[in-house]
Amino acid sequence: MTVTINLIGGSECYNSLLTPLVFNIDDIKKLRELGICGILSGTLPTASQQNIFLTVPLKLMVEEAIWLHIKGLAKFKVLRCNLLDSINEILEKDGEQIEKTAKLRLKKSFDLQREYKKEQHLLKLERLGITDSERIEKNVNGNDKLLEAALFIETPTTSNLLNNIHLSSVGWGISDKLLKILISQYGNWDNYLLFQALRDKGYVLAPGGRFGGKFIAYPGDPLRYHSHMIIRDALHYREQPIDFLELAANARLGTGVKKIWVIGSSTETDKGPTNNDKAIVDDNISFYSIEWAGFG
């Protein structure tokens, strides 16, 4: 089974590609099994949610998208037209029907929630030994405002708009141009080589910005484990100088958050993919872990 990754192009289609997105729930489940967790980012403009309530699309790192394609686990689909124009065209044609469908779906969701919450409230009164019908009715009616405040808006997991927009499949043979565009999103091919080496060793990686690194690495599913390592951007330590103040600061940061600070790079000088359809599979990756031991 292969997953579908959507690459949204700019007005010139292939001249710019935005963050890889996955909209299909089954694909997201499959990615989780493969150790690719991504970040859920979907919400409603008028009903913003906390992170734990966000829904599709799943936003992938560019490295994750490239790794999946190289492993033959994903295929790309590209919106080959201006997305905003396509959406406006659909809204002009079917906007009223889409709005009507959304309102009916919301009303049905609220009705089901009200029914469920009233049933749960009656069961609670029953467990408390309250059996008088008048008292029960007064209690239930008195909680109507609380009940209404507890209703939540369910963000749909499918997009009616996306289904109506023409998607062009790039297929298995990812073009050299498309691969280079994806790589250009972060500009350092060695970062991908670090990602690939760690992912192939079984680590699950996520963006590491909140800890000052490029990635953070988990030994398994992030829902089961804390992250163990902070990986900084690839550093050619044979050619580039190492700032010892930065080294000490990062080591102390890693120790402070109970993680190992890791630097790594390829020992080769190749800076990008080959001219064929597949990217380099580079085994010449070395890593160094740094910890603050403390003294004095």
Rank of each mutant, 00 (worst) to 15 (best):
E154G: 04
N139P: 00
I242F: 08
D144N: 10
I260Y: 06
A149Y: 09
V262I: 14
P219M: 11
H166T: 10
N164I: 00
N141F: 03
Y218H: 06
N188A: 07
K259D: 13
I136S: 05
G173H: 09
L247G: 00
F215E: 07
I136T: 06
R210V: 08
I242P: 00
G209T: 10
L235E: 02
L182Y: 06
L162W: 03
I260R: 08
L178R: 11
D233A: 11
W189S: 03
I263S: 10
N188I: 14
N143C: 14
I183V: 12
V140W: 04
D190N: 11
Y225N: 04
W172G: 13
K180S: 06
Q185V: 08
Q240I: 02
I231S: 05
I136R: 08
Y186L: 06
A249E: 15
V140L: 15
P222K: 08
H166L: 14
A251S: 15
F152Y: 04
I263L: 15
N143L: 14
N191Q: 03
P241H: 06
A150H: 00
N250E: 11
M229D: 10
Y186R: 13
I242D: 00
N191H: 04
Y237P: 01
L178C: 08
G254F: 12
G187T: 04
G254Y: 11
L194N: 02
Y186H: 10
G208W: 02
Q196M: 05
G173Y: 12
A149C: 07
A251N: 10
F215K: 02
K177G: 00
Y186N: 07
L151G: 05
F211K: 07
A251V: 12
W261T: 07
R238Q: 15
R135W: 05
W261N: 07
I231R: 01
L161K: 03
N143A: 15
F211R: 05
S184I: 05
I242V: 09
A206E: 14
L235H: 13
R238C: 10
G173E: 15
I183G: 01
K145S: 08
V257Q: 11
S169Q: 10
T157S: 12
Y192Q: 05
D190P: 01
T158W: 05
E148V: 01
S169C: 06
A206I: 00
N143I: 01
L205R: 06
E148Y: 03
R199C: 14
T158H: 11
A150G: 07
L147M: 11
L146I: 07
V262H: 03
A217H: 01
N250L: 13
L151A: 03
I231T: 03
K259V: 09
L193C: 06
K180G: 00
L247F: 14
N141S: 13
R199E: 12
R210S: 14
L194Y: 04
K201C: 07
I242E: 02
A206R: 10
G213M: 08
S175Q: 09
N191D: 15
G256S: 15
A149L: 13
